[in-house]
Design a binder for these strands. Structure first.
Lengths: 316, 316
DNA sequence: TAAACTCGAGTGA
DNA sequence: ATCACTCGAGTTT
């Protein structure tokens, strides 16, 4: 029982207040992220007003072809899977069946449709942002623990060389790829985020290794990752606050952790950190924690739980 | 090896052509579903034009308060988790920081923002539709098998009484909740979709039982579901075509199936049907199929695989 | 209401 | 290009 704050399953459950606060932050951030999408829609409108008199003119403006496709309901993701013929058909259908019947309102119709697709895109973007905010919060707590314990550390953004921890500021926390330190027993420790673990051929959110590397560019790190003896901790982090997604994403995490258990011949510590934890999954998580299948766990919205987990992590 | 079409893992992999076709269908359907969202935006614009002269007038129009909140970036889902104070704050911020600075373009700004949120909503709606289309396809293949085998069956839409299969038409396939028949060995069979299995306290996509019920209203069905001896097959169905979601959703399905294995004291047949199957997960699925952990499996986009699975299913 | 279902919009390695 | 990560927009029971 490595986390003194996890004494029973119910403690893991996310409070309504944490949920409220999470959704509020989400709405505020979403409004900020909406601006460029709104701007692009306005720019599209301006181009259409300046360069078209009727729907038939639209196809001839090369620079808005992609926007036209998006207005026709095709996401950037979907585009990659469609053939040229599919896209041409969708465009022509869109012009004939949607824009032309709108008469003189064809510009408004196209911009409105474009915004619908943009809204879906904004939603996708937000989901990624929420994930990296969770990562950032974990980083802040780990760094705080290192500082409290007066452990010197280095960190790297992207795949650059390591910078001394004394240069660490809150504004770099969102781009940290790896942190390195020497623990109380004078052992090298390397924490890497979102890295492909070759033993499972899958990316893992949190990986703690017992080797130092000069940088996280492919080769030196790959060599360390290749040897399963170098692994200390592997963890899954789920930053989403939506209770409706809680069990869904825990099921995903659970299979991901199961794959690690199967792939590694030696036992290593597995951890789970989630922001949306509901009663039923709290039982499963706690049960795995009690049996040792999970070495540690925490609710990301509970500072005490998270701090305890980080304190444990840097001591491994 | 219950499915003669599943001879090796790679056969389960979704073809690029099936993917292309899936994304094309998706785009066409999305454009149809977009219409009411576009209409609501136009209606909102009309109300704003008719009843407001400036952003300050908006709050006084009670009937557009929810739309205003959505324009302010709050989804219907998020609304449920926010306090009145949160929502008031978001509304006021939206008016002060977004609409007022737009000057005379405040109506356009509000409608554009509303459309962004609507686009996310449309995306959510589409995801549900894709799921029910998959269910519908499975129903059509099962009914076809029953018809081919000249097995009489009854079906129920929603939770009504059962209707004789001779009344079955393609247009009801999307609302079938359960199908009942008597198999070759004169045994009662009941197939139910999306039903809560009390042994795991979770909903399961596909459940085959060996009891008949008069209707699928709570009580008679609940009694059958309560006794684990009545279960023959439990299955997960994943209708999504996006390869990026394939492993994600297989991981979810895998934990769901794992929960069933753990919860049931007797062995029962577990099956998996997915539309997006990638190489790596195909190996895992096939491996479970070979070991018997999965009794059957199929790629939803492959008619032969699906028909074979359905032929096996109605013989159980 | 609570709980957990639907799945692809992004992203990056 | 390939693969598999981010998570909440809907929905139902």
């Amino acid at each position: 029982m490595n986390n003194p704050h996890i004494t029973l399953a119910d403690i893991l459950i996310t409070t309504p207040e944490a949920r409220r606060s999470g959704f509020l932050e989400y709405a505020l951030r979403r409004n900020k992220e909406a601006v460029p999408f709104i701007d692009k829609a306005k720019a599209l409108k301006a181009i259409l007003q300046a360069h078209t008199q009727s729907p038939d003119d639209i196809l001839s403006i090369e620079k808005i072809k992609e926007s036209l496709l998006e207005a026709a309901g095709v996401s950037v993701k979907a585009k990659a899977h469609l053939s040229i013929a599919d896209k041409d058909r969708l465009l022509q259908d869109f012009i004939d069946k949607v824009l032309k019947p709108s008469g003189s309102a064809y510009i408004e119709e196209m911009v409105y449709r474009y915004l619908l697709t943009s809204g879906d895109a904004l939603g996708g973007k937000m989901r990624n942002i929420i994930g990296s905010i969770a990562n950032e919060k974990l980083t802040r707590f780990i760094v705080s623990q290192l500082q409290i314990c007066q452990i010197e550390f280095t960190y790297t953004r992207k795949n650059d060389a390591f910078t001394h921890g004394k240069h660490f500021t809150i504004d770099v926390a969102d781009s940290i790829k790896a942190i390195q330190w020497t623990n109380g027993q004078n052992q090298q420790r390397l924490l890497v985020y979102n890295v492909n673990v070759p033993q499972v051929k899958k990316n893992i959110d949190i990986v703690l290794l017992k080797q130092a590397v000069a940088n996280t560019r492919s080769d030196p790190l790959k060599k360390v990752l290749a040897d399963e003896k170098n692994y200390l901790v592997i963890g899954e982090l789920k930053g989403g606050i939506d209770p409706a997604g809680a069990d869904e994403h825990w099921k995903t995490a659970n299979t991901a952790l199961g794959r690690v258990r199967t792939a590694f011949n030696r036992q290593l510590s597995l951890i789970f950190i989630g922001a949306a934890i509901e009663a039923s999954m709290a039982q499963e998580i706690f049960s795995q924690y009690q049996s040792g299948e999970l070495a540690n766990c925490a609710n990301l919205t509970d500072d005490n739980q998270l701090a305890s987990l980080c304190a444990w992590l840097i001591e491994q």
